[in-house]
Each structure stands twice: as C-alpha cells, then as structure tokens.
Design a protein around this nucleic acid. Sequence first.
DNA 1: CTCGAATGCCTAGCGCTGCTAGGATCAAGC
DNA 2: GCTTGATCCTAGCAGCGCTAGGCATTCGAG
Lengths: 192, 192
Amino acid sequence: MSVQERKQRERADRERLIVATARELAEQQGWDAVTTRRLAERIEYSQPVLYSHFRGKREIIGAVALEGASEMAVAMRSATAAASAPRERVAALARAYLDFADRNPAVYDALFQLDGGLTYAQEDTPEQLKDAFAALMETLGEVAGDGVEPELFTEVFWASLHGVATLTRSGRLLPEDAERRIELLVDRLAVI
Amino acid sequence: MSVQERKQRERADRERLIVATARELAEQQGWDAVTTRRLAERIEYSQPVLYSHFRGKREIIGAVALEGASEMAVAMRSATAAASAPRERVAALARAYLDFADRNPAVYDALFQLDGGLTYAQEDTPEQLKDAFAALMETLGEVAGDGVEPELFTEVFWASLHGVATLTRSGRLLPEDAERRIELLVDRLAVI
DNA sequence: CTCGAATGCCTAGCGCTGCTAGGATCAAGC
DNA sequence: GCTTGATCCTAGCAGCGCTAGGCATTCGAG
C-alpha cells in the first residue's frame, strides 16, 4: 500500500507543480506565453503528461483561478478585519480587491477574464468561488441599504470594481485617479 | 487620373469589405473563428491581401472597434435624447449601453476586451473613441454631483456598466436581475 | 523466479494558427 | 513593343493545442 500512496503523493505534487508553474509563467509573460510546450519544458516532462492531469489548457487556467479565488478571499477578509467602521471596511475591501488584481494580473485574468471552464453563480459553482463572493458579501451586505438585497448589492459593487480593475489594466483608464475612483464608488454605492 | 481614382475607390471598398466581414464572422461565431484564412476566403481574396490593408489581425479588430464606437455613440445619444428628466436620461443611457453590449458582443469585445492596438484616454486616442466617451459624459456630467469632476464620474459610471456587461456575458452574473442592477447603479451613483 | 499485464511516459505527428517570401500576371508609360 | 511597376497568389515557416502509438518499467500471479 505504501508504494501506491507514495505514487499518489508524487502525482499530486506534480499537479501542484503544473499549476504553480503555469501561474508563474502567466504572471511573468502573460497567459499567451503559457503554451503546453513551454509549460511541459518548465516542469521537465513531456506535453502529454499535462493531459494526464488536466483535460486541456482551459482546465489549467481553471485550477489557477480556484487557487487565486482562495487567496483573494483571504486578502479581502484580512483587509476588512483591520477596519472597524463600516465605511472604512468597504473602502479597505475595495482597495484590497483592486490591489489583488493589480499585483496578480494573470490570476485575476484566470478568474474573471479567461475561460477556465468554471461555472459561476450556480449550484455547482466551486466552493472557492462561492467563498470569494461570500467574503465580498460579508462586508458589503451591511451597507446595501434598506430594501436592497445583499446579494444584488454585492453583485453590483463587485461589477463596478471589476470594471475599474479591467479597464485600468488594459490602459483604458489612467492609473493616476485610482484612489479617487475608489472613494467615489464607496461613497456613492454604500449606504452607511 | 480616373483610373487611379477608380483603383483607390476599389481599394477602399475592399477594406470596408474586410472589416464588415470580420465583424460579421465574429458576431456569428466569435472572434476565435475569425482567422486570416477564413476571412480571406470569405472576401474571396488570398490571405496576403489582408496584410496589404492591415498590419495584422490586431488592426482588423481595431477597425471593427472604431466602427463600433461610432455606432455606440449614436445609440447612446438617441436613447438619451428621448428622455427629459436627468434621472431617466441616465437610466436610458445605461440601458442603451448594456443593450449595445448584449446585441453586439463581438463589437463590444473588440472595443473593450480585446487588443485592437488602439490607445485610450490619451491625446492620440482615435476620434471615435473620444466621441463615444463624450456621449457618455454629455448625460453623466450633469449628475456627477458637487465637487466631483464630470470626467472622473463618467469613468466610474462607465467602469460599472462595463463590469456588469462583461460579467453578465461571461455567465458570472445571471441575466435575470439585469434591470434591477441598472436601477441600483443609477439610483446610487447619479446625483439628481 | 518467471512471465504476462498494466502503468507511465515519450516521440512523433495532425490540423490549425498568424504571418511572409518569392514568383506569376497584368496594366501603364516611354 | 518593351520595360517597369503594381497586384495578387502559391507555398511555406514556426508555433499552437492536442493525441495516437509504442517503448520501458513495474506489478501481481503462478
């Protein structure tokens, strides 16, 4: 039995290596540079090995996305934990969100721009994604305002942050006014 | 001279044909299906002809984007012209924006998701893009609220709409609550 | 201990992509 | 009538995601 266990462990290790390497490569040179050939070379296996772990490139993106969702949830919760007043918590959340997108563009793309084969906003949505949304809602739910469902409010706030994040990174918004945009969003959307 | 003029005219016609065909193909089957081979076949010329008009696929996407920007500006202006009260104008604008994104997903991608080699928010930004932003600002500038620059407010509102548009289309937001999201955004962001 | 079965991995290759070099064809100008 | 230049095509390059097929190695049964 011990031999089988070792093999399973090694296989799991290799799978983690694939995901970590894909992520690293994507952060360094963008997702376009993450080709199955380059990825295989970096993990020092042949291409077909990738397909014994994942159905294809899409699933590898999905794996990076799930990893990123967990990290993002942690980042947002720890940012909001430090603030006590609701308004400051929301601002801290918004900053944490945009900061994560800024520091981990490839992970952010895997999560919200690319097709990682994941389902969102459904029952079979992966736990990591549900939890990241839950992390948003924990802070945003209490500033939704009367008669507005926390879910709906969270979606709208999230969409706004997402718009700012993506338009900024693609050069469609200039980064200079980032902080002022956050302030405006928080002040207008959140009901204190 | 007349011969040369005819040739120039034919060349311009062919360029329009390329852009129109690329757009059509993208709307029908997505941008991934717009390959230089397929595009060349549809316009009944060989591949290299495309490169005598555009530097590459990216520039073709950019051309579709510029065309789309003009149409979007028209759509937004005609939608807001019908409404008299500021609040209704803003709501009409938001609906027109999201409606355009919904009806012309490939064009919207060319404009705001893909790399069409265009510059945004700069001096050398193409007129069509500046004008589309101007169309937004015409309506949004008057509900920015005291002490908030119309430009900044327009950017934030636009980013929010963009977030809703992209997250909805990629299945990350469910389309059912679309109208309620619009109402919430308008009510909270716009200062009447 | 031996031998067939199963596993793990690699080489090679398919059909596709964006893009380009080089040659054929045809019209314009002297 | 010949040359020159523009126009367009065929053919091909390197790289892409993905997979078929075969070679070792390891495992389990006799």
